[in-house]
């Protein structure tokens, strides 16, 4: 019994069953993307839904252009996480695009919002920054780029739902310390540069309490106008 759980937890036992029938040539692995990205699933989940590790992000349903930009950044070291930098190093860009498309097209349900252990004041502060920003400190509302429903916009602005607070804090920290960078102008580097530790804690906690909207898909390109231009989101 415990063995079966171990297998299911790793995803390998399960993934064999989700391969479409007929894709398997005898003696060969299934000719599917699911089989090709099995190297990713222990950390990101079978369909990219994330795992219990709070620092391992969900990939499913994020805009394909965004995921592709991240894979390129890991490939050339602009974004650093050695186990991933190593895996992606010699794969070639068209294949990374295929991996991005694959995870973008997966739609496992978003996780239920988690009750937060921070105070109501902190949550209110987080809500204010996310929905309205703070003009006096040059902080634009997160929603002004990530969308009124925080589900992101095609092709390269990610949604902010379904991410755990530790992951969001770590990413904002990475931008502040320069270990994560995106194509210039790097909007998030600018935004994160204006945030204090307390701001980061507040937005990360608030975001995690948001319920999933009915339609969690990123909105089409051009649905709203960004407050300023971001290098990773083509005009």
């Amino acid at each position: 019994m415990s063995l079966r759980i171990a297998i299911a937890g790793l995803g390998i036992g399960l993934s064999v069953q989700v391969f479409p029938v007929g894709a398997q040539t005898p003696g060969q692995p299934p000719d599917t993307m699911a089989a090709r990205v099995e190297a990713c699933t222990p950390c990101h989940g079978n369909q990219g839904e994330g795992t219990s590790d709070v620092y391992f992000p969900r990939l499913a349903g994020k805009p394909a252009g965004y995921l592709y930009n991240q894979l390129l950044a890991f490939e050339n070291g602009r974004r650093k996480y050695p186990p991933m930098n190593y895996l992606l190093e010699y794969l070639g860009d068209p294949y990374l695009q295929e991996m991005a498309d694959y995870f973008a097209s997966q739609h496992p349900p978003l996780p239920a919002p988690v009750p937060s252990d921070v105070s109501q004041d902190v949550l209110r502060h987080g809500e204010a920054l996310v929905t309205r920003g703070d003009a006096s400190r040059q902080i634009p509302a997160c929603a002004s780029c990530h969308g009124p429903t925080l589900t992101g916009m095609e092709p390269a602005i990610p949604g902010l739902l379904g991410l755990r607070p530790n992951y969001v804090s770590a990413q904002l920290g990475a931008w502040r310390y320069g270990t994560r960078t995106a194509k210039a102008p790097d909007c998030m580097q600018i935004v994160a540069g204006h945030l204090t530790e307390a701001d980061v804690t507040a937005v990360a906690a608030f975001l995690a309490t948001r319920p999933a909207p009915e339609n969690a898909a990123p909105v089409p390109k051009g649905t709203y106008i960004l407050p300023f231009f971001c290098g990773s989101q083509p005009n």
């Binding site: 692995p29 089989a35 090709r36 990205v37 099995e38 190297a39 990713c40 699933t41 222990p42 950390c43 590790d53 186990p83 190593y86 895996l87 992606l88 010699y90 794969l91 070639g92 068209p94 294949y95 295929e98």
Partner: peptide, 22 residues
Amino acid sequence: NGGYPPGTEGNPRPYGMPPFAG
């Protein structure tokens, strides 16, 4: 660490092995 063989013209979409360190 797991790994992927390199993407090459003869094998542009390699299969990978997951890292088991964790």
